[in-house]
Every structure is written in C-alpha cells, then in structure tokens.
Simulated assay, not measured.
Amino acid sequence: MNIHEFLIPPAESARRKGPHDRIVMSSRVRLARNIRDAAFPGWAKKPERVRILDQIRPAVETLPEMRGAFSESMDNLSTLDKQILVERHLISREHAAKSAGSGLVLNRDESLCFMINEEDHLRMQALRPGLQLKQAWMAIDQADSVLEKRLEYAFSQDVGYLTACPTNLGTGIRVSAMLHLPGLVLAEQINPIIQSVNKLGLAVRGLYGEGTEALGNVFQVSNQMTLGEAESAIVERLDKVLSQIIEHEENARGTLLEKKPKMVYNHIGRAYGILANAHSISSKETMNLLSLMRLGMDLGLFPGSDRSLTDELFILTQPAHLQRQYSEKLSAEERDLLRADMVREHLKAVSRPISKPSGSEGGKLDKPEKQ
C-alpha cells in the first residue's frame, strides 16, 4: 500500500476540530513497552529486531481499531516517505532513521500510531485535535490492555514497565500537547511561562520535540516523570497546566489588542504582505509568518477566511511535502522558489487584513467562547 494514498489530504487534516483548537493544535498520549527477555532495539542485532517486529506487528494489526490500517516495515519506506510522516507528527525523527527490523502501523483516521523497534520495542500513541488528553489516554489505554494479553511485556513489580531510557521507566507514559502561543511570544511573556512550567516538572520543547526550535510559535508541553505517579494523575495534571497556559495566551492576545493594537496589526499585516508577495521564502520564515497569519485569523482580521488555510500551509510548505509534489530532486533554493509560488497561489483569495477585528469594540478582543 502506498503511504501517500493512505494519508489524509492536508486540506482535510487541517479542517479537523477540537476543544480550544485555536491554541491547542493537538493532544498526544504515548506509551513505551518492551518484550520480556529480549534486548532493547538499540542493543539488538538485526535478526532479533526482525523477530520482535514479526511478533508485535500482527498483534497490533488485529486490534479492532486498526482495521484497514497502513502497516509497513521501515526499510520499505523511502527517506522522503519517512520525512513526510515526521512532518505530520506521526512518527519521531529517531524512527525515521530506522530501516530493517523496524515497522509502522497507522490507522485510517491517523488517531492511533504504533512505532515498532524505535527506541523501545513498541511505542504506541493516540492523537486527537485540540485539547483532548483524556480522550487520547482512554484510547491508548484500551489498545494497551488488549495488547498486554497478547504480548509478554517486560515488567517489574518494583518499578513498573522496563524501558530503554530510564526517564520512561515506570508507567512508560508521555503526555503532550502542541500549542500555538504567538500572543505570549509577542507580549514577551513566553520565557516566564516556560520557566513556570519547568518548575512543575514538565518539559517545553520545539515543533518536533526534544532538541528542536519552536518554529511558528509552536511549543510542545509534556510530562517528564513517568515513575511513581499513576497515568491518570499525569494526564489530569498536564490537562490543568494546559488550561492555565490557554488562559494566559488568551489574556495576552486580549491585552495586546487593547494596549498595543498597532503593533499587532503591524506584525500580522507584514506577515500577510510577505507571504502574499514573496517569490522566494524559506521553510522557517514561512512557518513564522504563517503563525502570525493564523493569529490574525483567530482575531478576526481576515473576515471570510478560515484558520484551516494556514494550518494546511503549515503542512504543505514543509520540505518533504514540497519535494513530494515534484518528481525531480530539488535544491534548497529551488524549494524556496516553489514554496513562495505555492503560498501566493493559496493566498490569492485572501484579502489584506483589516485594522480592527470584526465584532470588537475599541480594539478589545471578544471573550473566547467556552468549548
């Protein structure tokens, strides 16, 4: 099966809705599991990895939720295929580097994804649009409970599930959300927020996780401890922290519009001007400018336009997705030219931003609707 025929089209993916999705772009809960009495993938020889793959993959494929899933060995996917999956946040950069003895099983609506022989034998994750940590946890917990009856996990009565990295020891859970926080960045409040979150034992990372920068004002917030705390308690704690961050972001946006409206309009107007008229633009600059346009959509500065347009361009303008549209190998300079052409074409129907949000009074932001 061709992965590109299987994946949800970017335009459709960008239209998916969820609670608080103007700020929380997606929620994810990941579990790390290993097979008892087998070497971790990083230490295992190729025949051992292949044996583990052949053991885990059928067990995952027969889950009711995985009916009609995409299932493939990583060595049968091209480098471009893998990079597209990374850009969609469906697999990790580490898994993209894997080949024989590693595999992927992805369900139809891209809400459940199983990476086999990444850092651990099995890393399963549930994804949801918006703030839906509890729903994601329930989905992956259900799948895990079924798999635990079919696979013999490496488990210790003293410390819990055994994992390749000590930071995942215990529950093996990683709960995270991807947040769009341009208000806090523009208000220069993002660093205090990050410091406060870190003090609570949570990690704040960039767009693609650990070791990456926050392109497009997008940040990932996740738990760091997995030992000594129940999974439901970790989910609940992160959910509460995210609700506070959402409130801070909404307040930052409202305060900026009230006290520095011209600064906000200037940033958003310049972003639109460059994106709608540039003839060469890098991936990084595109992401940062699309972030400001997305903020403008949320603030009502682009009447008649929907946030899904910027979310679609977030996906389409990334290097591998851009490369996929053209059969020949593209240099970075050629990608920058084609990216600019694509963005200009998509923004043809978008009028320049108005200088006052629709439905606002004196530059004040409408109170956000409850979700």
Score class of each variant (00 low, 15 high):
L179Y: 03
E231F: 14
Q224H: 01
Y208K: 13
A164R: 05
E210V: 02
Q189K: 14
G209C: 02
V197P: 05
Q189T: 05
D158E: 12
R237I: 08
R205Q: 12
S232Y: 12
T212N: 14
I173F: 09
L215K: 15
Y161E: 01
L238C: 02
Q135M: 12
T171C: 10
N223F: 01
Q142D: 12
Q224W: 01
A177D: 08
G201F: 06
L184D: 02
E213H: 11
S156A: 03
R174S: 13
D158G: 01
L179Q: 02
I140S: 10
G183K: 08
V235N: 07
S156F: 07
T226P: 08
A136D: 05
E188H: 15
H180C: 06
I140H: 11
G160N: 09
A214R: 00
Y161Q: 01
L200W: 10
L202S: 04
R205H: 12
D141H: 13
D158P: 00
L181R: 03
I234Y: 09
E231M: 14
V218G: 06
D144G: 04
H180I: 01
D158A: 08
Q189N: 10
G170C: 04
L181F: 06
D144W: 04
H180N: 11
H180V: 02
R237L: 01
G160T: 00
